[in-house]
């Protein structure tokens, strides 16, 4: 069977056809229409309108005239009232996100590299803690930090203090503790996600080459999980500094953040252009932070 004998099939040459289709039907882009409409109407348009609002002149009680001006921005930037809370927001946001990262990283490492079968269970537990309710958790902390709360009574019992610490609740520290607490679950999830693609063997290799445990981690894992680290920092910063509920519940007088006056303008006072201006200034800061962090990521990758 089939020993070639130099026989050719008559060739029908050169029937060029159209180049093969890319495989993407035209109508596929139509499927993006729903999400396009949803995002345009629900996100892009409202934000654009808000931006326009920031240039309006306020007439109080939520009314605006048609006259466009920069005055809201000027007020926002120059008024000392907003400066304090803005600085608070940056401070607590910055410290909070860094502390969250430092606390979460070892846990993420443990979950990814030290657990074999328990991984899913722990991730599950973290998810439960995450979904247990934002407001519920803040409220729970008021119970813990309060004058008759867990910490104070506990410390009193042990004898470390004679008077309940009033600084625990209604202070900047309280806000810091609570917002850090709130961000840890998400941070852990982000970090574990970024570590998934790092091969265990790389770490083992580093140790084999002489790097001690901690050194192996910092020199190998950190650069490779840079995306997750940056993601965690960015997410943490935005969420923490934009939080307007926690300061109201546990912040007292010293722990207020910029979110509070912004929400106030829209809910009570009614100087909406000012509120918008403050928001967009906040967003501008976020963009700077994102930009800075992405630079950091590139640097770490080296």
């Amino acid at each position: 069977m089939g020993i070639g004998q130099g026989v050719l099939i008559p060739a029908r040459r050169g029937r060029l056809r159209q180049p093969a289709r890319a495989g993407r039907p035209r109508w596929s882009l139509l499927l993006l229409l729903p999400v396009g409409i949803a995002l345009s109407l629900g996100f892009v348009l409202p934000l654009a309108l808000l931006f326009v609002k920031s240039f309006e002149t306020s007439l109080g009680y939520g009314q605006v005239s048609g006259h466009l001006t920069f005055s809201s921005y000027v007020t926002a930037v120059t008024s000392p009232l907003y400066r304090t809370v803005a600085v608070n927001a940056l401070e607590i946001g910055g410290i909070g996100t860094v502390v969250t990262l430092l606390l979460s990283y070892p846990l993420a490492f443990f979950i990814r590299f030290r657990l074999r079968r328990g991984q899913n269970t722990i991730l599950l537990l973290i998810m439960i803690s995450l979904f247990a309710g934002y407001i519920v958790k803040i409220y729970a902390w008021t119970t813990i930090l309060g004058t008759y709360g867990v910490i104070n009574t506990g410390l009193e019992r042990i004898g470390l203090i004679s008077q309940p610490l009033s600084v625990l609740l209604f202070s900047k520290i309280a806000v810091l503790i609570v917002v850090t607490y709130l961000s840890i679950p998400v941070s852990v999830l982000i970090l574990v996600g970024s570590m998934q693609n790092v091969d265990r063997a790389l770490l083992e290799n580093a140790r084999d080459l002489g790097a001690g445990g901690l050194r192996a981690v910092t020199s190998v894992l950190v650069p490779l999980s840079a995306t997750g680290i940056v993601g965690s920092l960015a997410y943490g910063f935005v969420v923490i500094s934009g939080d307007y509920i926690t300061p109201q519940l546990v912040g007292g007088t010293t722990g207020q953040m910029i979110g509070v006056p912004i929400s106030d303008q829209f809910l009570n006072i009614g100087d909406q252009p000012l509120g918008s201006a403050l928001s967009f200034l906040m967003l501008a800061v976020f963009i700077l932070v994102y930009f800075g962090l992405s630079r950091l990521e590139r640097f770490k990758g080296v």
Binding site: G2, G4, Q5, V7, A11
Partner: peptide
């Protein structure tokens, strides 16, 4: 030129 020997012996269905 396509290589020679690329067809089966005659009499067989392709």
């Amino acid at each position: 030129a396509p290589a020679r020997g690329n067809a089966p012996p005659p009499g067989q269905r392709v």
